[in-house]
């Protein structure tokens, strides 16, 4: 008895010993900045004078200012239409881009899962958009979508699809569409790769059985492939969803300062560094963190996603 518990104690000690360096690093690079940001959200900090920050409670989030003559107004993030516009933009962007990326990623993964010559080459080639740094691909697309020198307008004009050049990133109607198009182009390969990994886990004999029974391929997809790939798909969707909710670089390069595409991260950065409102920007970052956390928890709970492979 005693020996066994000593062994298990020893093992626990060893486990903690091995874990400590990583926990320390995580605390230093993730937890500490997070707590600091949340703290600044409750102060009146300015970027010029971070040390002089004073605690002001929830005033950055919501505050009723009484003008003393019976009238008054709500101030703070929760009463700021620009913030809510950013929330709307972010959610719209997330839903639309993730839906398209999932469908296209699934199609690409099904193709890549089939046996054909040059499959290895295709798998590598399809990853190229994902491998290019976002800043580079955003700038590249910005030039391709340029209304005067852009190749997209050139192709459209010479094929007769459009009669005048479209100002993709400038026009209010197309700015969000432009951002979504580039994001889909960039991250579909990522989705395809994750789904492909899931597809390859499905045992081949199930398909063989279905073939012998003469089930048509569409039914095979809905009844066999989809249910079996679902756990991998759910994880892929949540990865993409979280990633696109904090979308920043693409929008910042492609359509900077454009009210139609301002995301929560862009809004937070603007307040943090461009305006003299460091505390307000911190509060926005905190809300962004909360929003993402809540949506993730809901998603895991509602979708019963399991991260340990299979349910």
């Amino acid at each position: 008895m005693k020996r066994e518990s000593q062994l298990s104690r020893q093992r626990k000690r060893a486990a903690w010993l091995f874990l400590t360096p990583m926990l320390a690093v995580l605390a230093a690079v993730a937890l500490w900045p997070l707590l600091k940001t949340i703290y600044f959200g409750f102060t009146d900090a300015s970027l010029d004078d971070l040390a002089g920050a004073r605690w002001i409670g929830f005033r950055n989030f919501l505050e009723y200012v009484d003008y003393g003559d019976g009238t008054g107004e709500y101030y703070g993030l929760l009463a700021d239409p620009t913030w809510w516009n950013a929330v709307r933009n972010t959610l719209f962007f997330t839903v639309v881009s993730v839906v398209f990326e999932t469908i296209l990623g699934m199609i690409v993964a099904l193709v890549l899962n089939a046996n054909f010559r040059g499959r290895g080459f295709m798998r590598a080639a399809i990853l190229i958009p994902w491998a290019i740094p976002t800043i580079v691909s955003a700038k590249m697309w910005a030039w391709m979508m340029h209304d005067q020198f852009g190749i997209l307008n050139d192709i459209g004009l010479s094929l007769g699809l459009i009669s005048t050049p479209i100002a993709w990133t400038a026009s209010a109607d197309t700015a969000m569409a432009a951002v979504i198009i580039v994001d889909i182009w960039k991250t579909t390969p990522f989705m395809a790769l994750l789904i492909l990994a899931g597809l390859q886990m499905i045992p081949g004999d199930i398909y063989e059985a279905a073939r012998i029974d003469g089930v048509n391929p569409i039914k095979v997809f809905w009844r066999v492939t989809l249910p079996l790939v679902r756990p991998a798909l759910m994880v892929a969707v949540i990865f993409r969803g979280l990633d696109s909710m904090r979308i920043f670089d693409l929008i910042y390069v492609l359509t900077p300062n454009n009210a139609q595409t301002t995301s929560m991260s862009v809004y937070a950065r603007q307040n943090l560094f461009e305006f003299d409102k460091f505390a307000y920007g911190s509060a926005a970052s905190t809300l962004l963190f909360l929003t993402i956390a809540i949506i993730t928890i809901l998603y895991i709970w509602a979708g019963r996603v399991s991260f340990d492979g299979g349910r």
């Binding site: 340029h146 209304d147 005067q148 020198f149 005048t164 050049p165 479209i166 100002a167 990133t169 400038a170 026009s171 359509t255």
Partner: peptide
């Protein structure tokens, strides 16, 4: 003005101008 002027900074407008457009 082209509709894309809504995304032009100094160098974009100079690009259109200096190419004679």
């Amino acid at each position: 003005a082209p509709e894309g002027v809504l995304a032009y900074k100094e160098e974009d407008s100079r690009g259109v101008w200096q190419t004679g457009n």
